[in-house]
């Protein structure tokens, strides 16, 4: 498939280890690509580069083969955007804003916009300044989606929406996905991304740590089960069977086992003879996947770098303090000596 968006070793260094570093990824046509990461990890900065609002320091960002900085205007013909920070122009109400926006985009047929308004249960006649956060978010979504363009860039689009509305919004995203649109979205909610995305990138301190393929995650050929036994003997006995134990909690007579799908019947057959307290499947979802990734990364250079820097700063401060204290002591001494001399 054609690569609609291609980012190669993109770097924007704001100093003090802030910014984004050596970001590379590609999004194919019709794919939904997600970004997840803590606050300030650099998701928005990447999206701003895609929109051509920021100029890359290093590397290149190509959208539909065009340079996102130089040809940013040309690219906008194919891109719609929901910004992360919702602030509207100084206009009277939502309707005026949407009409103005339609004029700017060049949309004349408002039927799709009206469909979106109905779907999101938005009252656009409300005063823009008095809108709640959710309403603003909905207005922003309508303003972007009504353009009906091929590429959609969403910066934490579901924040502020109530749970029901979030469902509706995700439905909407899936609808767009069905239409064959390429969507890039950032979020802090794993379930959101899991539901809609094909691929999700985890960003930490401005670096992509991992890119997970959701389809692969969902269609893994094995499952995890957690089993608790009523009796200790049985627990010990089960452990002797050749199951792959991922987690072992001796205190509670609990084990978590990883089992290939084809062996699932064998497991239940084995378990028939045991007196169980409970058995439950442990879902290996995106969240868990990334937690695993992070736990392995903890020793990696990023953390070390961070921490060593922090320590360095601390030690510098300490040194300064020590110096100050020493200086004071020396001064005090000198004064004393002066007095004594007198």
């Amino acid at each position: 498939m054609e690569e609609v968006i291609k980012v190669k070793s993109l770097t924007k260094d704001y100093g003090e280890n802030r910014g984004i570093f050596d970001i590379s990824f590609a999004v194919k046509k019709g794919e939904v690509f997600g970004f997840v990461g803590t606050n300030g990890s650099g998701k928005t900065t990447i999206l701003r580069h895609l929109m051509g609002f920021l100029k890359p320091m290093k590397g290149e960002v190509k959208v539909l083969g065009l340079d996102s900085w130089k040809d940013s205007c040309e690219i906008k013909k194919y891109v719609e955007y929901v910004p992360g920070e919702i602030a509207f122009p100084d206009l009277k109400d939502g309707t005026t804003f949407l009409k103005n926006q339609a004029q700017l985009i060049g949309v004349k047929d408002m039927s799709y916009a009206n469909y979106l308004i109905k779907k999101l249960q938005l009252d656009p006649s409300a005063n823009l300044k008095r809108m709640s956060k959710g309403m603003k978010q909905k207005t922003a979504i309508v303003a972007a989606f009504m353009a009906d363009k091929d590429i959609i860039i969403l910066d934490e689009p579901a924040t502020g929406l109530d749970p029901l509305m979030r469902e509706t919004f995700l439905e909407l995203v899936l609808e767009e996905k069905k239409k064959g649109k390429t969507i890039i979205m950032s979020s802090q909610m794993f379930d959101e991304l899991e539901l809609t995305c094909d691929k999700v990138a985890l960003i930490l301190n401005g670096r992509i740590i991992d890119i997970a393929d959701i389809n692969q995650l969902k269609n893994m050929p094995y499952k995890f089960y957690k089993v608790e036994f009523k009796e200790r003997e049985q627990y010990l006995k089960f452990k002797k069977l050749k199951y792959e134990i991922v987690r072992d909690q001796e205190k509670y007579n609990q084990v978590t086992i990883k089992i290939q799908d084809k062996n699932i019947n064998k497991m239940f057959n084995d378990l028939k003879n045991y007196n169980l307290k409970f058995i439950s499947q442990v879902y290996h979802n995106l969240e868990k996947h990334f937690k695993d990734v992070l736990s392995t990364q903890k020793d990696s250079y990023i953390y070390k770098e961070e921490e060593s820097k922090k320590e360095l700063r601390k030690s510098k401060k300490l040194k300064k303090r020590l110096l100050k204290i020493e200086n004071k002591q020396i001064k005090a001494k000198n004064k004393k000596e002066d007095r004594d001399d007198k």
Binding site: M51, F53, S72, C73, E74, K76, K77, V79, E80, Y81, P83, E85, I86, A87, F88, P89, D90, Q101, L104, I105, G106, A143, A144, A147
Partner: peptide
């Protein structure tokens, strides 16, 4: 101030610049 800096600061300039409008 409202015409440029204000809109950039608040972020509302995004709505104009995410349309095919040159800077």
């Amino acid at each position: 101030n409202n015409l440029l800096a204000g809109q950039v600061d608040s972020g509302s300039m995004a709505y104009v610049l995410s349309t095919p409008t040159k800077r």
